[in-house]
Design a protein around this nucleic acid. Structure first.
Lengths: 187, 187
DNA sequence: GGGTAACCTTACCCCCGGGTAACATAGCGG
DNA sequence: CCGCTATGTTACCCGGGGGTAAGGTTACCC
């Protein structure tokens, strides 16, 4: 028994450790923002030491990019699957809204980071994030065929989702109904 | 003539200099965000030296707070004046929307900073910013009497305003029409 | 069982940028 | 015209945190 004081540095396969790092990083970024989150803090939350983060992601920015990209991919994938073009527009829209709200509900940190990053127009993630915006916009344009309206609707969804997280007494379906009403599809 | 190389340190009354500092700070904060903006950069943009900023605003945070507060006051004042409770709801809403869009148009930096700050739920400005949110929410609730809908509508306005800034080929009235349509007041 | 590669840590470097002390001068009141 | 205050500057301190060099240990494979 060499020393009982060391922190049980449990070994872990790379892929698994990577996910844990991303989870810790995401929670930290979502809570305090990019700049008010230190690599040291992320490492501690992930139960490892700082150089591991650099070994796996190269830099703080690299870690952030990895998290944002993964979050964006996940969101787009969920929505595309739900709103695949079969069936009439209102059904597709409703399914897409539910997929979005489900993502927000289950990945609060991911959503918070994505939302903040979409506001920062000048960032180095402009390309990746605008790709996400484009994807959602094209889905909505295929339903509304009215670009300004589609953008307004996007904002309505984002804002309402944020409000919902602070008022969980409303059901997911109630929230979806509000959005359907805004879209012009009365029940 | 002592030295032609000095930067013409023109004297200026305090109030006037203060406005210039706030203008420079606002543009910088809007462009790069709070953390990626250095006091040095703000001082240079304002044509003065760094200690002046500390002399006038105490700290970087103090300068930021001053800018956010002034922006918020200005926006609330414009909207309250426009949407004062006389006349039917659609007219009040339309006037409020136009006041909002005018503010966004004329104070792009102020709006960008306000919008970012409203997303950051945990900041030290939470109190001030939530007061702004409350004000707008109460105006909209007096029109819609439907809190979730009012929040969604707020988001639609914010998002559409951002999109408008990137697509100035649309007129202010066209944008306002989109919002009126979302509100359920068809032309 | 020994070489090797992957996993992981401790201890440090060093710059950026917030904040300040000390000093300079314009211009107004008396 | 003389000093006092408000306006302004240069030059510096120093702590936080991004990033790294060097080394240790586990486990897999032959």
């Amino acid at each position: 028994m060499p020393s009982a004081s060391t922190h049980t540095p449990r070994r872990m396969p790379r892929a698994e450790r990577e996910q844990e790092m991303l989870r810790a990083a995401g929670d930290a970024f979502a809570g305090h923002g990019f700049h008010d989150t230190s690599m040291e803090a992320i490492a501690e939350a992930a139960g490892i030491s700082k150089p591991m983060l650099y070994n796996y992601f190269g830099s703080k920015h690299g870690l952030y990019v990895a998290y944002v990209m993964r979050s964006g991919r996940l969101l787009m994938q969920s929505m595309r699957e739900a709103a695949s073009p079969d069936g009439p527009a209102p059904e597709r829209l409703h399914a897409g809204i539910l997929a979005f709200l489900t993502y927000v509900e289950e990945h609060g940190s991911g959503w918070a980071v994505l939302q903040r990053e979409m506001l920062a127009q000048g960032g180095s993630l402009a390309a990746e994030v605008s790709q996400l915006r484009e994807g959602i916009a094209s889905m909505l344009n295929s339903i509304f065929d009215d670009e300004p309206f589609a953008h307004a609707f996007t904002g309505a969804g984002e804002s309402l989702a944020g409000w919902w997280l602070a008022h969980p007494e409303h059901s997911k379906d109630q929230i979806a109904e509000v959005l359907m009403k805004i879209a012009g599809f009365r029940p």
